[in-house]
């Protein structure tokens, strides 16, 4: 219990730090959204009018006051208003999250399946060269840029083969290519870690003992190796979530999907700081929650970690 509370406290600390760093970095950007939108000479606003707009956005007070203002707002669930559109950031995020969650969730599941398929293929493959090919695939995958893969997939499957329509696709059809684009680079490090972990466990003396009791390879892999190899794979999966968030930004742009990624790109263009601030905290929250879950699940997989938990 102490362990869980400690993890939660440190997760909250990470969130606060992410908020603060994002706030400082965004403030340090030259210019601001108010200036971009209202100091346009075509609008013909006077200096006093601009000053009153600044005041209404709370942009005229000191840095510390602004920090406190937006922090207390965030804690109360008020994420502020978009400077570019005037809509509440909460509404904007709320409309973007479901589609990104679907894309990222599916991408993650497909990546995990792909990684498991690669790892098992490499381990169980009867022929040496096939195992070698499967073992070297992840290195190839890891070096594929997301935007390039997306464009190549569209070229091949949509334009050449005409298998998947890019213009007004059905809801399911629209997900296939983006999910693949997102999954391939994420699956690579997972597969690498899993193969390595399985190799390490296979070399442990207890595997020889199980074999000496008459177990076959499939029994050993499923009942002994997998659980022991799961922990490193789980840990890397938590870390890869960050990559998933970054990948979603590129993927949504390439496939013109609406979601948090697109929202990020648009907000960056417009230097819409309240929206960016909201997105950073959202991403940090997702990252922290997933890694918290990983930390809480790990002792269930490996009982040796429980000792540290109870201590």
């Amino acid at each position: 219990m102490t362990y869980a509370l400690g993890r939660v406290a440190s997760a909250a600390g990470v969130l606060l730090a992410a908020f603060t760093v994002a706030f400082l970095l965004l403030q340090a950007l030259p210019g601001d959204a108010v200036m971009i939108r209202f100091e346009n000479p075509e609008l013909g606003l006077s200096a006093e009018q601009i000053a009153s707009v600044r005041e209404s956005y709370g942009a005229d007070v000191g840095l510390l006051a602004q920090y406190w203002h937006s922090l207390s707002g965030f804690l109360g669930g008020d994420l502020g208003f978009s400077v570019a559109s005037g809509a509440p950031v909460r509404t904007l995020l709320g409309s973007a999250i479901p589609s990104t969650l679907l894309l990222a969730g599916l991408g993650f599941v497909v990546a995990a399946l792909l990684a498991a398929a690669l790892a098992f293929g490499a381990i169980l493959s009867p022929s040496g060269w096939l195992a070698n090919v499967l073992r070297s695939l992840p290195s190839l995958f890891v070096s594929v840029p997301v935007f390039w893969l997306g464009i190549v997939l569209i070229q091949i499957f949509s334009f050449r083969l005409g298998l998947i329509s890019v213009i007004r696709p059905g809801p399911l059809e629209a997900l296939i290519l983006p999910v693949l684009t997102l999954a391939v680079p994420i699956s690579a490090p997972m597969a690498q870690v899993l193969v390595r972990a399985i190799d390490d466990v296979q070399a442990q003396p207890f595997i020889t003992v199980v074999r000496s009791k008459g177990a076959g390879e499939a029994w050993i892999l499923l009942r002994n190796v997998l659980r022991n190899a799961a922990l490193p794979a789980l840990t890397i999966a938590g870390v890869l979530l960050g990559e998933l968030i970054g990948g979603a930004v590129v993927t949504e742009t390439v496939f013109a999907r609406f979601g948090v990624g697109r929202l990020t790109a648009d907000a960056l263009d417009a230097q819409d700081i309240p929206v960016l601030q909201g997105i950073v905290v959202l991403a940090a929250l997702a990252f922290v929650v997933v890694n918290l879950l990983v930390d809480l699940v790990a002792p269930l997989i490996d009982p040796r970690l429980k000792r540290r938990v109870h201590a």
Binding site: Q204, P205, F206, T208, V209, S212, K213, G214, R227, R304
Partner: peptide, 20 residues
């Protein structure tokens, strides 16, 4: 045959039991 006719007692008891 393994397990039924012939059993193995290994060298290193520390690493010879599945830790999970």
């Amino acid at each position: 045959l393994r397990g039924r006719r012939v059993g193995l007692v290994p060298q290193d008891p520390g690493g010879s039991l599945d830790p999970t």
